[in-house]
Structure formats: structure tokens, C-alpha cells
Design a protein around this nucleic acid. Structure first.
Lengths: 344, 344
DNA sequence: TTGAAAGCGCTAACAC
DNA sequence: GTGTTAGCGCTTTCAA
């Protein structure tokens, strides 16, 4: 089933069929109808390889994830569903427009990123690329894609620059979480920061601090630093709970550290949320299964990826991409780890 | 960077370069070396679209999953990691051989499966296809792929036929779980079956029954039927626990039903594993986070997918595929939901 | 062992 | 509006 079969069947040249497929101008409605009928009748579908060869789209969008981090998540099986959510948002949105998402792993840290990426691009010749953290902020990758001149989006990136940045509003999310706890009556609300390698860590801290100030609440010794790992969550929580005036609520910058905080609380005999409220970031599946289930900021990975795909396809159709980040609001999911502080 | 650039650089015809790329015979080692040097120097990577057009491989393997089921899992965010494990096993194995896995969702139940699948195959022209449940046992799909003559594997399928079947040994896994409980001293070991739509459900029941008989233990009223849903797990467990002589251990055919069983036990004030031991099937991430974490049969999804990819690539290289299913053993992961029964 | 020629299915450029 | 021609980057003949 090639374009020529269709052409023969409809009694036109293959070029006219091509015009119909691509919805190009200069085809009489009557002819277009006839060609479309032949296409449907014969069940013809253009080969994307051939389309690509003819010099047009490949209808492929490449989604790049960090190899080590992704494989580690897969092996650990801790229920992190970043990839699933990314596929959910990205594949479905791509499919809406006749594109396909193709998923690849690339080393961020290696010095051969550039070579590896060039090879993938040469082999696949995608029409666009989606970068996820930490690639989204990797200057080598950004520079390379910009030079090549391919459309790309950076998920979770907070600065403008080449490629569209799409991200959630980290500051606002942290502020909302803080406000929620304050409105429950908490005065001493601590915050465990994430790895300084990610710029979003700073934003989350900033959101918390801003809201605390707005509420006229002290922040002095209530910021503990973590790095997104369980271990760092443990030490940060220990540090906070041994303060002379310990917090009655803790916001952790990700679920893993929140899990650690919960474990520490349990170990010290503190009831959650009775003695200590816990607020988490990310809302990965695991927080539904802890005792108690955790209240969390929902990181809208599916939405962000869908948005990224949408932006790329938009630009492929000739629209300019915004050079400022596109920011969406995160939601809060209230579960049972937050409550008013004990009147003590 | 095309094959001609390399040819020019190495001072040979592009045809010779093609031979080197494809590791074809009739190239003097000396020439081969020279060409390879040019390839490396220029960072040349063949375009898969062009390779495909030339009439050879596309180096693409299509992995097909059920659309509704997959999207539902993604939306529910219960931590099911089937897709992740599949990518872990499949992508990495494919990459080892220079192939890429491309992931698609297809409706199983719709009457237009055939059209949908034909369109995908026509567009992508993959070299092979991997079918997962319930596609692996869908006669329309199997027939279609067989007619087209494409290499394909059926993951989780238990019968031979066109395409290689790769599956875990369901019977043996169920028997092992049963044996484990029996060896702890349990006499009344109940089993909650899965949906009869899946042939593996029967196999799991058969394994349990066989082992029970081997141990000379009664099975009479100890088989409860479920359908893999939480709700069915609840009613099955209720039924079992209200028996005059209730079981001291329950094996559930999947994690979701095991979760339900745990919830029922809690509600009825039964301690797990003190009063009731629980054994689950699948070992999705969630069973690590329950109280207590569940002992489970590990469904080796990554391994199965890797095996499927391997079989397909093998067949692409001219090897015959086995016409009998390739079966691998499942592992048991012991956690804290199983123990010796109380001496009551 | 190597190279030259033809063609894969499509699109872009141009002619009609 | 529609058809014709050339060519995308590769592989598969087949001739040398």
C-alpha cells in the first residue's frame, strides 16, 4: 500500500495524494474527497520513514530522561511514577496531533553527552525534543539543541532561554503548603530543603520563607537542609526535632524525605498528625500508602509533559514559542498527615 | 553526515561503507578499519528512516499495551509499575543490540483493533512486536501479525502458536508460595483466584491445589473467587474468614486483592501475620509500604520483556523461534506478612 | 573484494 | 489545480 496505489485507485497523480495527506492547498474539494475515499478504502497509511526521507516531518518527538536516575528508580521499585506520568501526558497529547513520543535514556553527567545525543538525533531525526530534569538545565544539551535548531521544551526548568521552559510554580506551591499549615494554627513550621543542584530547591525554600514572613512567623532555625535522599531527610528531621523549641509541622521538599521524617517521628513516639504535621512534595504513589497517608503538593508531571508536547507541535506549525517559562499551578492533596497542632 | 561523506573521507564507494555498517562480508579488514575510522572521526550515524527506505531493518521494536488498562493504571497512581519494568527490561535489551523499543497503546476490545494495528505497523514499520496481556492472548491480533509475517513475542502467554510465548511459571510459583506457608506449619491455606478472563488465573489455582494435595492438606472450601479487583478481594476474604473453620493463611492472586485482604483482617481485628498470614502475587511497589509489608511472588516483568526482545532479535537474525512457550521461574520475596500460625 | 545502478515511498520544486 | 521530475540516504542487485 503506497501512495501510488492510492493514486491509481483515485485516478490522480501520486502528488495529488500527497497534497491530500498533508492537507496542502490546490486540490479541488471533489478530487480531495475522491482521494480520501481511496485512502480509506485501501487502508493506506503513509510510512513515516518515507515521509522523513522525502524531507518532511518524522512525526517523532524524543523524550529524554536521565539514564542513571531512571534506571535506579526502576530497579528500586519504590513506586516513583515520573515516567508513567510523563508518558500519560506526553504520549496522549502527541497522539492527538498524529505524533509519537519516543522515549530515550541519556547520561547527563558523562562528557560524551553531546556525542550520544547527536547520535540519537541523527538516527531518529525527531521533530522535537523534550528535556526533563536534570537535562532541562544542562547547558551542553541546551546549547547543542539550539545550534542544531530543533524545537525543544525543558520540563521543570525555571529560566527562559533557547527552548520553552514549562514548570510548576514551585514558590507558590511551597507558599500554599505553608499557608495551609498556618491556617490550621501552626506557628513553628519547618522546611527541609532539597538538593542545591536543582534550582527548584531554592524556589521551594523561597516560597516557604515568603509565606512565613507574610504570616509573621519565625523562620530562624526552622530551615534544615536535605538533598532529596531518605538519609538526608532522616538527619534533617532529627535536627529539627531536637531543637529547644521544635516545630509542630514539617514540610519536606520531596516524598522520600517526608517518608524519612515520618519514620523519625514514629521512632521518637510522636503521633502524626497529633504531635507533628507532615507536608510532602511530589505526591508520588507511595504517599497514599503510608500510615497516615501524607498530605502533599502534587507535581503535575503529566500536565507539564502534555504542555511541552503541545508547545513543540505548536512551534512545528510555525508559531513562535514563548521565551519566558510557562508556569502552571500545582495542586495540594490533603490527606491525613496534617491537622491542627495539639494545644500544648 | 551521510554515508557518502564517509565514503569520500575513506576513499571508497558508499556501498563499501554500507557493508561495514552492516557488518557484511566481502570487505578487506584493512578497508574495514579505514572506513570505521572515518565513521568514528565524522561521528556518522545511519539514519534509521533511510535504512528502512533502503528496504532493510527499521531497528524498531513495537511494544503494545492495552490502552484502557494502562491509562487507568496511570491515572489511579496506585504505584503499579508494569510499564516501568517492561521498559527496564525491554529498552535496555533492545539497546544492547542497536534496536529501539517504541511503546504504543492499543485497544484490545474494540472491533477496530485490526485496523488500528495495521495503521501503526504501516506507519512505523517495526521489525518486531511485543504483545503484553491481554493482547498476548488476543486471537485477532495474533492472527494479523502472523499473516503479515512479522516477528513477535507474547509476554505472559502460556500456549505455543505463532510468535514466541514467554511467561513465568505460574503453577510453580503458586505451588512454592503454598509450600512456603505449609512449611511454616499452616494447615488451612486459602487461595483467592483472579479473573477467569486471564488463563494465568487457572494456572495459579492449579499450582496451589496441586501443592495442597501433595501436602495432604484440604482444599474443599478454601478457594474463593476474585477478579483481581480490590472489591472482589474484600468479599473473597470476608467469605473465607467467616468459614466455620477459617484459614490461617491466604494467598491472593494479585497485590490489589492482597491489599483488600489486609484491610479486612485489620477491620476484623486479626493481626497479620500473627492471626493470619498473607501471601501476594506480583510484587508491585505498593506491597513494600503496607503494614506489614507483604510477602509476595515476584512477577519478573523486566526479565520477561528482555527475553521477548531477545527472541525477536534472534529471529531477525535468522534463528528459528521455539514454538513452545519459554518459561522462567518466579522468585518469592519474603517480607513480614507471613509467619507460623498461632498455636491456638 | 569492490563499485555502479536501480529503487525503496515520499515531498519539494517546477511546469503545465 | 494538477502532473512531472528530481532527489532524500540508504540497501539490494549485479557487473567488474
Amino acid at each position: 500500500m503506497t501512495i501510488r496505489h492510492v493514486a491509481a485507485d483515485a485516478g490522480v497523480s501520486h502528488q495529488t495524494v500527497s497534497r491530500v495527506i498533508n492537507d496542502a492547498p490546490n486540490v479541488r474539494p471533489e478530487v480531495k474527497r475522491r482521494v480520501q475515499a481511496s485512502i480509506d478504502k485501501l487502508g493506506y497509511v503513509p510510512s513515516i520513514a518515507a515521509q522523513r526521507m522525502g524531507g518532511s516531518r518524522s512525526y517523532l518527538i524524543l523524550a529524554l530522561n536521565d539514564r542513571d536516575r531512571t534506571i535506579a528508580d526502576w530497579r528500586e521499585r519504590q513506586g516513583t511514577d515520573w515516567i508513567d506520568q510523563m508518558l500519560l501526558g506526553g504520549m496522549l497529547k502527541a497522539a492527538e496531533h498524529g505524533y509519537r513520543l519516543i522515549f530515550e535514556l541519556v547520561d547527563t553527567h558523562a562528557d560524551h553527552v553531546e556525542r550520544e545525543l547527536r547520535a540519537t538525533l541523527a538516527a531518529l531525526q525527531p521533530d522535537g525534543v523534550i528535556l526533563t530534569p536534570p537535562h532541562s538545565e544542562n547547558p551542553h544539551i541546551i546549547k547543542l539543541l539550539d545550534e542544531i535548531g530543533i524545537a525543544f521544551a525543558r520540563v521543570g526548568a525555571l529560566q527562559g532561554g533557547p527552548g520553552v521552559a514549562v514548570a510548576m510554580d514551585e514558590e507558590s506551591a511551597a507558599a500554599s503548603a505553608t499557608r495551609h499549615l498556618a491556617s490550621l494554627g501552626h506557628k513553628r513550621i519547618a522546611f527541609i530543603s532539597g538538593s542545591p543542584e536543582y534550582s527548584l530547591s531554592k524556589r521551594r525554600v523561597a516560597g516557604w520563607r515568603a509565606e512565613m514572613e507574610r504570616e509573621k512567623l519565625p523562620t530562624d532555625d526552622l530551615l534544615a537542609s536535605g538533598d532529596f535522599s531518605f538519609g538526608s531527610g532522616t538527619s534533617a528531621t532529627e535536627a529539627l526535632l531536637t531543637l529547644k523549641d521544635p516545630p509542630t509541622a514539617i514540610i519536606a521538599s520531596n516524598d522520600r524525605m517526608a517518608l524519612a521524617a515520618l519514620a523519625v517521628a514514629n521512632r521518637r513516639g510522636l503521633a502524626v498528625p497529633g504531635d507533628l504535621s507532615l507536608f510532602s512534595f511530589d505526591n508520588t504513589p507511595v504517599v497514599r500508602f503510608t500510615q497516615p497517608p501524607l498530605t502533599a503538593v502534587d507535581q503535575p508531571v503529566a500536565e507539564l509533559t502534555a504542555l511541552a508536547v503541545d508547545m513543540i507541535i505548536r512551534s512545528l506549525r510555525g508559531n513562535e514559542l514563548p521565551d519566558q517559562p510557562v508556569i502552571i499551578e500545582a495542586g495540594l492533596v490533603e490527606r491525613s498527615s496534617t491537622a491542627a497542632p495539639c494545644a500544648s
